[in-house]
């Protein structure tokens, strides 16, 4: 897995109108061009970036502070963004890598239990 490059591409996309234009014109080609500069992606990662699949990207370990901007770029409403991440965890399993995995993040319910909270209903915030 190449989480580093997935996040780096999103970092560039989030802050650069030129990268955004290229992505909007041809997502697959834009990501391929980025890969040609030395980045490595798996087919699954490319698919998640192209679709876009917010849930899969979160499962792979993309930092929410990067993913949030990507979702906003795609005009994904806040509640839908949160739900897509929950769906990603439900479908693919716990976060695999990155800041949320480092200290054992295992998903919303497990995290709530750590805090002594009841699992939160979906979409309440």
């Amino acid at each position: 897995m190449s989480l580093y490059y997935v996040q780096k591409y999103l970092f560039e996309l989030n802050r650069s109108e030129q990268v955004q234009s290229a992505y909007e014109h041809d997502r697959q080609a834009a990501i391929a061009a980025f890969a040609n500069q030395g980045a490595t992606f798996t087919d699954r990662e490319v698919q998640a970036l192209v679709q876009p699949d917010v849930g899969l990207l979160f499962h792979l370990g993309v930092n929410g502070q990067i993913l949030m901007h990507f979702a906003a770029f795609h005009q994904i409403e806040w509640q839908d963004y949160l739900q897509q991440m929950r769906d990603g965890i439900a479908e693919h399993g716990p976060v695999q890598e990155g800041v949320y995995a480092v200290t054992g993040y295992e998903g919303t319910d497990a995290h709530a239990a750590d805090l002594g909270h009841e699992p939160r209903s979906e979409g309440t915030h």
Partner: peptide, 12 residues
């Protein structure tokens, strides 16, 4: 806070 994650909105 748990910003931009499924836990967003949780506050201790």
């Amino acid at each position: 806070h748990w910003p931009a994650t499924p836990d967003s909105g949780k506050i201790n």
